[in-house]
Design a protein around this nucleic acid. Structure first.
Lengths: 233, 233
DNA sequence: TTGTTTTGGTCTGGTCATCAGACCACTTAG
DNA sequence: CTAAGTGGTCTGATGACCAGACCAAAACAA
Protein backbone atom coordinates (compact mmCIF):
# COMPACT_ATOMS: atom_id res chain seq x y z
CA UNK A 1 0.00 0.00 0.00
CA UNK A 2 2.92 2.30 -0.63
CA UNK A 3 1.58 4.20 -3.61
CA UNK A 4 -0.81 6.99 -2.71
CA UNK A 5 -3.84 7.78 -4.77
CA UNK A 6 -2.99 9.11 -8.19
CA UNK A 7 -3.99 12.72 -8.82
CA UNK A 8 -7.76 12.37 -8.77
CA UNK A 9 -10.31 15.08 -9.20
CA UNK A 10 -11.63 16.39 -5.99
CA UNK A 11 -15.06 17.75 -5.49
CA UNK A 12 -14.96 21.45 -6.25
CA UNK A 13 -16.89 23.55 -3.84
CA UNK A 14 -17.45 27.24 -3.62
CA UNK A 15 -16.14 28.57 -0.35
CA UNK A 16 -18.51 30.47 1.88
CA UNK A 17 -17.57 33.84 3.25
CA UNK A 18 -19.05 33.23 6.67
CA UNK A 19 -17.01 30.03 7.03
CA UNK A 20 -13.82 31.92 6.36
CA UNK A 21 -14.86 34.62 8.78
CA UNK A 22 -15.70 32.01 11.42
CA UNK A 23 -12.28 30.45 11.04
CA UNK A 24 -10.49 33.76 11.47
CA UNK A 25 -12.73 34.82 14.33
CA UNK A 26 -12.01 31.56 16.09
CA UNK A 27 -8.29 32.13 15.78
CA UNK A 28 -8.68 35.68 17.02
CA UNK A 29 -10.69 34.56 20.02
CA UNK A 30 -8.36 31.76 21.05
CA UNK A 31 -5.37 33.97 20.59
CA UNK A 32 -6.22 37.41 21.86
CA UNK A 33 -9.30 37.16 24.00
CA UNK A 34 -10.13 35.73 27.41
CA UNK A 35 -13.41 34.15 28.45
CA UNK A 36 -15.77 36.98 29.42
CA UNK A 37 -14.19 39.42 26.98
CA UNK A 38 -16.47 41.12 24.49
CA UNK A 39 -16.02 40.72 20.78
CA UNK A 40 -15.97 43.88 18.67
CA UNK A 41 -19.45 44.94 17.56
CA UNK A 42 -20.87 43.22 14.50
CA UNK A 43 -20.86 46.41 12.47
CA UNK A 44 -17.25 46.90 13.42
CA UNK A 45 -16.25 43.36 12.50
CA UNK A 46 -17.98 43.77 9.16
CA UNK A 47 -15.79 46.79 8.57
CA UNK A 48 -12.63 44.96 9.66
CA UNK A 49 -13.16 41.94 7.44
CA UNK A 50 -14.61 43.86 4.57
CA UNK A 51 -17.79 41.81 4.43
CA UNK A 52 -21.42 42.53 5.19
CA UNK A 53 -22.90 42.35 8.62
CA UNK A 54 -25.02 39.35 7.61
CA UNK A 55 -21.92 37.31 6.96
CA UNK A 56 -20.46 38.31 10.29
CA UNK A 57 -23.68 37.25 11.96
CA UNK A 58 -23.66 33.89 10.20
CA UNK A 59 -20.11 33.34 11.37
CA UNK A 60 -20.95 34.29 14.94
CA UNK A 61 -23.92 31.95 14.90
CA UNK A 62 -21.69 29.06 13.89
CA UNK A 63 -19.34 29.88 16.76
CA UNK A 64 -22.35 30.07 19.06
CA UNK A 65 -23.36 26.59 17.98
CA UNK A 66 -20.06 25.13 19.11
CA UNK A 67 -20.36 27.04 22.37
CA UNK A 68 -17.47 29.42 21.86
CA UNK A 69 -19.37 32.70 22.14
CA UNK A 70 -22.68 33.98 23.45
CA UNK A 71 -24.40 36.94 21.78
CA UNK A 72 -26.46 39.09 24.15
CA UNK A 73 -28.90 41.52 22.66
CA UNK A 74 -28.03 45.07 23.48
CA UNK A 75 -24.91 44.12 25.36
CA UNK A 76 -22.55 42.53 22.89
CA UNK A 77 -21.14 39.11 22.09
CA UNK A 78 -18.97 37.60 24.81
CA UNK A 79 -16.46 34.79 24.75
CA UNK A 80 -17.73 31.89 26.80
CA UNK A 81 -15.92 30.06 29.52
CA UNK A 82 -14.21 27.28 27.65
CA UNK A 83 -13.48 24.16 29.61
CA UNK A 84 -11.01 21.64 28.29
CA UNK A 85 -13.80 19.38 27.10
CA UNK A 86 -16.00 22.00 25.47
CA UNK A 87 -12.98 23.21 23.56
CA UNK A 88 -11.49 19.90 22.68
CA UNK A 89 -14.60 17.95 21.89
CA UNK A 90 -16.81 19.86 19.53
CA UNK A 91 -14.08 21.78 17.80
CA UNK A 92 -11.60 19.09 17.08
CA UNK A 93 -11.56 17.58 13.71
CA UNK A 94 -11.18 13.89 14.09
CA UNK A 95 -7.97 13.05 12.41
CA UNK A 96 -7.03 9.55 11.46
CA UNK A 97 -3.81 8.20 12.85
CA UNK A 98 -2.45 8.22 9.34
CA UNK A 99 -3.08 11.94 8.91
CA UNK A 100 -1.60 12.84 12.25
CA UNK A 101 1.52 10.95 11.42
CA UNK A 102 1.74 12.72 8.08
CA UNK A 103 1.30 16.09 9.72
CA UNK A 104 4.09 15.36 12.13
CA UNK A 105 6.33 14.23 9.31
CA UNK A 106 5.61 17.46 7.56
CA UNK A 107 6.53 19.42 10.66
CA UNK A 108 9.72 17.41 11.03
CA UNK A 109 10.68 18.37 7.53
CA UNK A 110 9.79 22.02 7.65
CA UNK A 111 10.26 23.36 11.13
CA UNK A 112 13.89 22.50 11.88
CA UNK A 113 15.26 24.36 8.84
CA UNK A 114 12.80 27.09 9.70
CA UNK A 115 14.29 27.42 13.14
CA UNK A 116 17.75 27.58 11.61
CA UNK A 117 16.64 30.42 9.39
CA UNK A 118 15.05 32.16 12.33
CA UNK A 119 18.39 32.09 14.11
CA UNK A 120 19.94 34.22 11.39
CA UNK A 121 16.96 36.38 10.49
CA UNK A 122 15.10 37.10 13.73
CA UNK A 123 14.84 40.75 14.66
CA UNK A 124 15.20 41.97 18.21
CA UNK A 125 11.44 42.47 18.33
CA UNK A 126 10.84 38.92 17.17
CA UNK A 127 12.96 37.60 20.00
CA UNK A 128 11.29 39.83 22.56
CA UNK A 129 7.92 38.62 21.36
CA UNK A 130 8.96 34.98 21.68
CA UNK A 131 10.27 35.57 25.18
CA UNK A 132 6.96 37.16 26.06
CA UNK A 133 5.09 34.13 24.74
CA UNK A 134 7.21 31.74 26.75
CA UNK A 135 6.61 33.86 29.83
CA UNK A 136 2.87 33.56 29.30
CA UNK A 137 3.22 29.84 28.70
CA UNK A 138 5.10 29.54 31.98
CA UNK A 139 2.39 31.50 33.82
CA UNK A 140 -0.34 29.27 32.52
CA UNK A 141 1.52 26.11 33.41
CA UNK A 142 1.97 27.35 36.97
CA UNK A 143 -1.78 27.86 37.13
CA UNK A 144 -2.26 24.30 35.95
CA UNK A 145 -3.42 25.20 32.43
CA UNK A 146 -2.21 23.53 29.26
CA UNK A 147 -1.28 26.67 27.31
CA UNK A 148 -2.21 25.26 23.95
CA UNK A 149 -2.46 28.69 22.34
CA UNK A 150 0.96 29.72 23.59
CA UNK A 151 2.40 26.52 22.17
CA UNK A 152 0.93 27.31 18.76
CA UNK A 153 1.96 30.90 19.01
CA UNK A 154 5.55 30.05 19.71
CA UNK A 155 5.87 27.89 16.63
CA UNK A 156 4.09 30.47 14.55
CA UNK A 157 6.44 33.16 15.75
CA UNK A 158 9.46 31.11 14.85
CA UNK A 159 8.02 31.01 11.36
CA UNK A 160 7.45 34.77 11.45
CA UNK A 161 11.00 35.35 12.59
CA UNK A 162 12.29 33.35 9.66
CA UNK A 163 10.84 36.14 7.57
CA UNK A 164 9.37 34.12 4.76
CA UNK A 165 5.80 34.93 3.81
CA UNK A 166 5.39 31.79 1.74
CA UNK A 167 6.05 29.61 4.74
CA UNK A 168 3.72 31.74 6.81
CA UNK A 169 0.90 31.30 4.31
CA UNK A 170 1.36 27.55 4.37
CA UNK A 171 1.33 27.48 8.15
CA UNK A 172 -1.78 29.63 8.26
CA UNK A 173 -3.61 26.96 6.35
CA UNK A 174 -2.28 24.12 8.47
CA UNK A 175 -2.74 25.83 11.84
CA UNK A 176 -6.16 24.39 12.48
CA UNK A 177 -4.96 20.88 11.83
CA UNK A 178 -1.82 21.31 13.88
CA UNK A 179 -3.82 22.40 16.87
CA UNK A 180 -5.25 18.95 17.36
CA UNK A 181 -1.88 17.28 17.58
CA UNK A 182 -0.88 19.88 20.15
CA UNK A 183 -3.93 19.26 22.25
CA UNK A 184 -3.29 15.57 22.28
CA UNK A 185 0.33 15.95 23.18
CA UNK A 186 -0.21 18.48 25.92
CA UNK A 187 -2.73 16.36 27.76
CA UNK A 188 -0.06 13.90 28.73
CA UNK A 189 1.14 14.19 32.33
CA UNK A 190 4.31 16.26 32.53
CA UNK A 191 4.30 17.02 28.83
CA UNK A 192 3.46 20.75 29.01
CA UNK A 193 6.57 21.37 31.12
CA UNK A 194 8.76 19.44 28.73
CA UNK A 195 7.29 21.35 25.84
CA UNK A 196 8.17 24.64 27.48
CA UNK A 197 11.69 23.41 28.09
CA UNK A 198 11.98 22.50 24.43
CA UNK A 199 10.80 25.93 23.41
CA UNK A 200 13.35 27.53 25.68
CA UNK A 201 16.18 25.57 24.15
CA UNK A 202 15.05 26.64 20.70
CA UNK A 203 14.81 30.27 21.66
CA UNK A 204 18.22 30.22 23.34
CA UNK A 205 19.79 28.92 20.16
CA UNK A 206 18.05 31.62 18.17
CA UNK A 207 19.28 34.29 20.57
CA UNK A 208 22.81 32.94 20.24
CA UNK A 209 22.33 33.21 16.46
CA UNK A 210 23.28 29.57 16.20
CA UNK A 211 21.37 28.03 13.27
CA UNK A 212 22.64 24.49 13.73
CA UNK A 213 21.68 24.42 17.39
CA UNK A 214 18.27 25.92 16.66
CA UNK A 215 17.61 23.36 13.96
CA UNK A 216 18.67 20.57 16.23
CA UNK A 217 16.61 21.79 19.17
CA UNK A 218 13.53 22.07 17.01
CA UNK A 219 14.07 18.60 15.60
CA UNK A 220 14.32 17.06 19.06
CA UNK A 221 11.30 19.00 20.21
CA UNK A 222 9.11 17.71 17.41
CA UNK A 223 10.41 14.18 17.80
CA UNK A 224 9.39 14.32 21.46
CA UNK A 225 5.92 15.41 20.48
CA UNK A 226 5.75 12.66 17.90
CA UNK A 227 6.57 9.93 20.38
CA UNK A 228 3.84 11.02 22.71
CA UNK A 229 1.12 11.63 20.16
CA UNK A 230 1.65 8.42 18.27
CA UNK A 231 1.81 6.38 21.46
CA UNK A 232 -1.53 7.68 22.53
CA UNK A 233 -3.28 6.32 19.45
CA UNK B 1 12.77 45.82 7.80
CA UNK B 2 13.22 42.41 9.31
CA UNK B 3 9.86 42.03 10.99
CA UNK B 4 7.08 40.98 8.67
CA UNK B 5 3.58 42.32 8.95
CA UNK B 6 1.85 41.26 12.12
CA UNK B 7 -1.16 39.00 11.62
CA UNK B 8 -3.54 41.43 9.95
CA UNK B 9 -6.99 40.78 8.62
CA UNK B 10 -7.04 40.04 4.98
CA UNK B 11 -9.92 40.74 2.68
CA UNK B 12 -12.14 37.72 2.66
CA UNK B 13 -13.34 36.70 -0.74
CA UNK B 14 -15.63 33.96 -1.83
CA UNK B 15 -13.88 31.60 -4.21
CA UNK B 16 -15.47 30.99 -7.57
CA UNK B 17 -16.08 27.49 -8.82
CA UNK B 18 -15.03 28.22 -12.38
CA UNK B 19 -11.70 29.60 -11.17
CA UNK B 20 -10.98 26.40 -9.32
CA UNK B 21 -12.01 24.35 -12.31
CA UNK B 22 -9.80 26.46 -14.58
CA UNK B 23 -6.85 25.88 -12.30
CA UNK B 24 -7.30 22.13 -12.28
CA UNK B 25 -7.96 22.00 -16.00
CA UNK B 26 -4.79 23.94 -16.64
CA UNK B 27 -2.80 21.45 -14.61
CA UNK B 28 -4.44 18.56 -16.40
CA UNK B 29 -3.63 20.05 -19.78
CA UNK B 30 -0.02 20.85 -19.05
CA UNK B 31 0.49 17.47 -17.49
CA UNK B 32 -1.39 14.92 -19.51
CA UNK B 33 -2.22 16.43 -22.86
CA UNK B 34 -0.27 17.44 -25.92
CA UNK B 35 -1.06 20.34 -28.25
CA UNK B 36 -3.74 19.14 -30.67
CA UNK B 37 -5.28 16.74 -28.17
CA UNK B 38 -8.95 17.06 -27.45
CA UNK B 39 -10.29 17.83 -24.00
CA UNK B 40 -13.08 15.63 -22.68
CA UNK B 41 -16.52 16.93 -23.68
CA UNK B 42 -18.00 19.67 -21.55
CA UNK B 43 -20.81 17.46 -20.30
CA UNK B 44 -18.24 14.88 -19.35
CA UNK B 45 -16.04 17.37 -17.52
CA UNK B 46 -19.08 18.61 -15.64
CA UNK B 47 -19.63 15.04 -14.51
CA UNK B 48 -15.97 14.56 -13.55
CA UNK B 49 -15.71 17.70 -11.47
CA UNK B 50 -19.20 17.48 -10.08
CA UNK B 51 -20.18 20.97 -11.23
CA UNK B 52 -22.59 22.29 -13.80
CA UNK B 53 -21.76 22.64 -17.44
CA UNK B 54 -21.97 26.42 -17.17
CA UNK B 55 -19.09 26.45 -14.73
CA UNK B 56 -17.05 24.21 -16.99
CA UNK B 57 -17.75 26.56 -19.87
CA UNK B 58 -16.71 29.59 -17.84
CA UNK B 59 -13.47 27.83 -16.95
CA UNK B 60 -12.81 26.88 -20.57
CA UNK B 61 -13.48 30.42 -21.67
CA UNK B 62 -10.88 31.72 -19.25
CA UNK B 63 -8.36 29.22 -20.64
CA UNK B 64 -9.33 30.30 -24.15
CA UNK B 65 -8.60 33.91 -23.22
CA UNK B 66 -5.02 33.07 -22.31
CA UNK B 67 -4.70 31.07 -25.50
CA UNK B 68 -4.36 27.63 -23.98
CA UNK B 69 -7.32 25.95 -25.66
CA UNK B 70 -9.60 26.49 -28.64
CA UNK B 71 -13.22 25.33 -28.51
CA UNK B 72 -14.63 24.24 -31.88
CA UNK B 73 -18.34 23.85 -32.20
CA UNK B 74 -19.30 20.30 -32.99
CA UNK B 75 -15.73 19.05 -32.89
CA UNK B 76 -14.55 19.54 -29.34
CA UNK B 77 -12.09 21.71 -27.46
CA UNK B 78 -8.48 21.25 -28.46
CA UNK B 79 -5.26 22.16 -26.72
CA UNK B 80 -3.48 24.85 -28.69
CA UNK B 81 0.07 24.84 -29.84
CA UNK B 82 1.85 26.59 -27.02
CA UNK B 83 5.01 28.38 -27.93
CA UNK B 84 7.42 29.41 -25.23
CA UNK B 85 6.20 32.98 -25.33
CA UNK B 86 2.47 32.31 -25.43
CA UNK B 87 2.90 30.06 -22.42
CA UNK B 88 5.31 32.18 -20.51
CA UNK B 89 3.88 35.58 -21.11
CA UNK B 90 0.18 35.64 -20.45
CA UNK B 91 0.15 32.91 -17.84
CA UNK B 92 2.98 33.94 -15.64
CA UNK B 93 2.24 35.74 -12.51
CA UNK B 94 4.77 38.46 -12.11
CA UNK B 95 6.62 37.66 -8.95
CA UNK B 96 8.76 40.11 -7.13
CA UNK B 97 12.35 39.18 -6.51
CA UNK B 98 11.54 38.98 -2.85
CA UNK B 99 8.83 36.40 -3.39
CA UNK B 100 10.93 34.27 -5.69
CA UNK B 101 13.67 34.19 -3.16
CA UNK B 102 11.19 33.18 -0.48
CA UNK B 103 9.79 30.43 -2.64
CA UNK B 104 13.24 29.05 -3.25
CA UNK B 105 13.99 29.16 0.44
CA UNK B 106 10.84 27.24 1.07
CA UNK B 107 11.85 24.62 -1.47
CA UNK B 108 15.28 24.39 0.10
CA UNK B 109 13.67 23.65 3.41
CA UNK B 110 11.08 21.18 2.27
CA UNK B 111 12.31 19.26 -0.71
CA UNK B 112 15.58 17.78 0.54
CA UNK B 113 13.97 15.99 3.50
CA UNK B 114 11.20 15.04 1.13
CA UNK B 115 13.68 13.36 -1.17
CA UNK B 116 15.14 11.54 1.80
CA UNK B 117 11.72 10.25 2.71
CA UNK B 118 11.10 9.25 -0.87
CA UNK B 119 14.23 7.13 -0.78
CA UNK B 120 12.74 4.98 1.95
CA UNK B 121 9.10 5.07 0.92
CA UNK B 122 9.01 5.01 -2.87
CA UNK B 123 7.23 2.05 -4.40
CA UNK B 124 8.50 0.29 -7.49
CA UNK B 125 5.75 1.98 -9.48
CA UNK B 126 6.81 5.38 -8.18
CA UNK B 127 10.35 4.78 -9.37
CA UNK B 128 9.22 3.50 -12.76
CA UNK B 129 7.08 6.60 -13.16
CA UNK B 130 9.99 8.89 -12.33
CA UNK B 131 12.22 7.09 -14.80
CA UNK B 132 9.55 7.54 -17.42
CA UNK B 133 9.39 11.26 -16.68
CA UNK B 134 13.13 11.66 -17.01
CA UNK B 135 13.02 9.77 -20.29
CA UNK B 136 10.44 12.22 -21.60
CA UNK B 137 12.49 15.12 -20.29
CA UNK B 138 15.51 13.75 -22.15
CA UNK B 139 13.50 13.40 -25.37
CA UNK B 140 12.31 16.96 -25.22
CA UNK B 141 15.77 18.32 -24.55
CA UNK B 142 17.08 16.47 -27.59
CA UNK B 143 14.39 18.16 -29.63
CA UNK B 144 15.52 21.49 -28.25
CA UNK B 145 12.52 22.01 -25.96
CA UNK B 146 12.72 23.20 -22.37
CA UNK B 147 10.61 20.45 -20.77
CA UNK B 148 9.17 22.67 -18.11
CA UNK B 149 6.27 20.31 -17.42
CA UNK B 150 8.57 17.34 -16.97
CA UNK B 151 10.65 19.35 -14.55
CA UNK B 152 7.58 20.11 -12.46
CA UNK B 153 6.34 16.58 -12.76
CA UNK B 154 9.56 15.12 -11.47
CA UNK B 155 9.50 17.19 -8.32
CA UNK B 156 5.82 16.46 -7.82
CA UNK B 157 6.46 12.76 -8.17
CA UNK B 158 9.20 12.86 -5.58
CA UNK B 159 6.60 14.31 -3.26
CA UNK B 160 4.13 11.61 -4.23
CA UNK B 161 6.71 8.92 -3.59
CA UNK B 162 7.28 10.29 -0.13
CA UNK B 163 3.73 9.19 0.53
CA UNK B 164 2.53 12.14 2.56
CA UNK B 165 -0.76 13.65 1.51
CA UNK B 166 -0.26 16.76 3.61
CA UNK B 167 2.88 17.65 1.72
CA UNK B 168 1.11 16.92 -1.53
CA UNK B 169 -1.71 19.29 -0.68
CA UNK B 170 0.75 22.05 0.11
CA UNK B 171 2.60 21.50 -3.14
CA UNK B 172 -0.65 21.52 -5.09
CA UNK B 173 -1.26 25.01 -3.90
CA UNK B 174 2.25 26.20 -4.60
CA UNK B 175 2.62 24.52 -8.01
CA UNK B 176 1.44 27.52 -9.95
CA UNK B 177 3.92 29.78 -8.26
CA UNK B 178 6.76 27.31 -8.58
CA UNK B 179 6.27 27.07 -12.30
CA UNK B 180 7.52 30.57 -12.86
CA UNK B 181 10.82 29.99 -11.13
CA UNK B 182 11.26 26.88 -13.28
CA UNK B 183 10.60 28.76 -16.46
CA UNK B 184 13.13 31.40 -15.58
CA UNK B 185 15.77 28.88 -14.66
CA UNK B 186 15.30 26.68 -17.70
CA UNK B 187 15.70 29.53 -20.14
CA UNK B 188 19.36 29.85 -19.29
CA UNK B 189 21.75 28.34 -21.83
CA UNK B 190 22.77 24.84 -20.79
CA UNK B 191 20.53 24.83 -17.76
CA UNK B 192 17.96 22.26 -18.95
CA UNK B 193 20.70 19.66 -19.34
CA UNK B 194 22.10 20.36 -15.90
CA UNK B 195 18.62 20.14 -14.46
CA UNK B 196 18.14 16.72 -15.98
CA UNK B 197 21.47 15.61 -14.60
CA UNK B 198 20.40 16.79 -11.17
CA UNK B 199 17.17 14.85 -11.43
CA UNK B 200 19.08 11.73 -12.42
CA UNK B 201 21.32 11.98 -9.38
CA UNK B 202 18.30 12.33 -7.15
CA UNK B 203 16.54 9.38 -8.70
CA UNK B 204 19.65 7.22 -8.48
CA UNK B 205 19.90 7.90 -4.78
CA UNK B 206 16.24 7.05 -4.35
CA UNK B 207 16.71 3.79 -6.25
CA UNK B 208 19.66 2.94 -4.05
CA UNK B 209 17.37 3.61 -1.07
CA UNK B 210 19.94 6.06 0.21
CA UNK B 211 18.10 8.85 2.07
CA UNK B 212 21.18 10.92 2.87
CA UNK B 213 22.34 10.92 -0.73
CA UNK B 214 18.87 11.76 -2.01
CA UNK B 215 18.57 14.63 0.41
CA UNK B 216 21.98 15.92 -0.55
CA UNK B 217 21.33 15.62 -4.28
CA UNK B 218 18.07 17.50 -3.97
CA UNK B 219 19.72 20.22 -1.93
CA UNK B 220 22.43 20.76 -4.52
CA UNK B 221 19.89 20.71 -7.30
CA UNK B 222 17.80 23.46 -5.73
CA UNK B 223 20.85 25.50 -4.87
CA UNK B 224 21.88 25.37 -8.52
CA UNK B 225 18.47 26.62 -9.53
CA UNK B 226 18.66 29.35 -6.95
CA UNK B 227 21.95 30.68 -8.23
CA UNK B 228 20.65 30.97 -11.73
CA UNK B 229 17.26 32.43 -10.97
CA UNK B 230 18.49 35.04 -8.55
CA UNK B 231 21.33 36.07 -10.86
CA UNK B 232 18.90 36.74 -13.63
CA UNK B 233 16.98 39.31 -11.63
C1' DT C 1 -25.20 10.96 -50.14
C1' DT C 2 -28.22 11.16 -45.99
C1' DG C 3 -29.50 10.73 -41.36
C1' DT C 4 -27.91 10.15 -36.67
C1' DT C 5 -24.86 11.25 -32.98
C1' DT C 6 -21.72 14.14 -30.70
C1' DT C 7 -20.13 18.43 -29.64
C1' DG C 8 -19.97 23.33 -28.48
C1' DG C 9 -23.24 27.71 -28.26
C1' DT C 10 -27.18 29.89 -26.23
C1' DC C 11 -30.96 30.82 -23.33
C1' DT C 12 -34.35 30.33 -19.38
C1' DG C 13 -35.90 29.87 -14.76
C1' DG C 14 -34.78 28.96 -10.35
C1' DT C 15 -31.74 28.64 -5.92
C1' DC C 16 -28.45 30.32 -2.78
C1' DA C 17 -25.07 33.24 -0.48
C1' DT C 18 -24.16 37.72 0.03
C1' DC C 19 -24.80 42.65 0.24
C1' DA C 20 -26.59 47.34 1.68
C1' DG C 21 -29.69 49.37 4.35
C1' DA C 22 -33.57 50.12 7.39
C1' DC C 23 -35.94 49.35 11.54
C1' DC C 24 -36.88 47.00 16.09
C1' DA C 25 -35.67 45.49 20.96
C1' DC C 26 -32.74 45.37 24.57
C1' DT C 27 -28.89 47.02 27.63
C1' DT C 28 -26.10 50.30 29.61
C1' DA C 29 -23.89 54.69 30.65
C1' DG C 30 -24.73 59.30 31.63
C1' DC D 1 -35.14 58.76 32.28
C1' DT D 2 -32.83 59.34 27.95
C1' DA D 3 -29.50 58.64 24.44
C1' DA D 4 -26.17 55.79 22.48
C1' DG D 5 -24.72 51.40 21.35
C1' DT D 6 -25.67 46.68 20.47
C1' DG D 7 -27.75 42.40 18.76
C1' DG D 8 -32.22 40.71 16.13
C1' DT D 9 -34.94 40.88 12.04
C1' DC D 10 -36.43 41.92 7.57
C1' DT D 11 -36.39 43.59 2.66
C1' DG D 12 -34.83 44.08 -2.06
C1' DA D 13 -31.05 43.61 -5.21
C1' DT D 14 -27.07 41.21 -7.17
C1' DG D 15 -24.08 37.66 -8.81
C1' DA D 16 -22.61 32.83 -9.16
C1' DC D 17 -24.32 28.70 -9.92
C1' DC D 18 -27.39 24.95 -11.36
C1' DA D 19 -30.56 21.92 -14.24
C1' DG D 20 -32.40 21.54 -18.36
C1' DA D 21 -33.90 22.58 -23.00
C1' DC D 22 -32.91 23.77 -27.57
C1' DC D 23 -29.87 25.27 -31.61
C1' DA D 24 -25.91 24.77 -34.96
C1' DA D 25 -21.88 22.79 -36.58
C1' DA D 26 -19.03 18.79 -37.18
C1' DA D 27 -18.19 13.93 -37.35
C1' DC D 28 -19.58 9.55 -38.30
C1' DA D 29 -22.12 5.52 -40.06
C1' DA D 30 -25.17 3.36 -43.28
Amino acid sequence: MATPAKPEFEAIRRSKVYEEVAKQLERLILKKLQPGDKLPAERELAEMFGVSRSSIRDAIRSLELVGLVEPRQGAGTVVREVSAESLVNPLTIVLARQQISELLDFRKMLEPPLAARAATHASVEDITEMEEILRRQDDKLRRGELAIEEDSEFHYNVAMASDNSVVLKVLDVLMDLLRETRERALQVEGRPQKSLAGHRRILMAIKRRDPAAAEDAMRRHIQDVEKIVLNKL
